[in-house]
Write a protein that binds this DNA or RNA. Structure first.
Length: 112
DNA sequence: CCCGTGACGGGGG
DNA sequence: CCCCCCGCCACGG
């Protein structure tokens, strides 16, 4: 799957929809799972466009260090953090505490 | 058409 | 910790 594929965004959305409640994933892992490891930016772009759809848990996508780099794109000043905290994820200084415990890698749970 | 700008990530200094 | 460069590519000016 290449980002040139017109359905790249849709494939990203399919993966994001499968991130379990209370877990998070990174842009890079999603790109890697889709066979386009260099296209993490496009995953971010897909999230940017995802606000049109209401069935995509975009708050569960963070950067590779567990930082809430996308929070500016959510309403208000703290919606992304609040949504994650509602799912039992602790955040300190914009960073998910015990990130490795919550990280969900699609390659470990979804078919190739 | 070129160019700057990114919800990114890896590499190097 | 800081910085820069590169690959990636959609979008707007």
């Amino acid at each position: 799957m290449l980002p040139k594929d017109l359905n790249f965004f849709e494939h990203v959305y399919e993966v994001v929809r499968k991130i379990p409640y209370g877990r998070v994933c990174s842009y890079g892992l999603i790109a890697r799972y889709l066979g386009s490891p260099q296209s993490a930016r496009m995953v971010g772009w897909a999230m940017n466009a995802s606000h049109l759809k209401d069935d995509i848990p975009a708050h569960r996508v963070v950067n590779r260090l567990g930082l809430l780099t996308g929070k500016q794109h959510f309403e208000g000043t703290n919606l992304m953090q609040q949504l994650l905290e509602n799912e039992g994820i602790e955040i300190k200084e914009n960073q998910i505490v015990n990130f490795d415990k919550f990280l969900w890698d699609p390659s470990d749970h979804l078919p190739v």
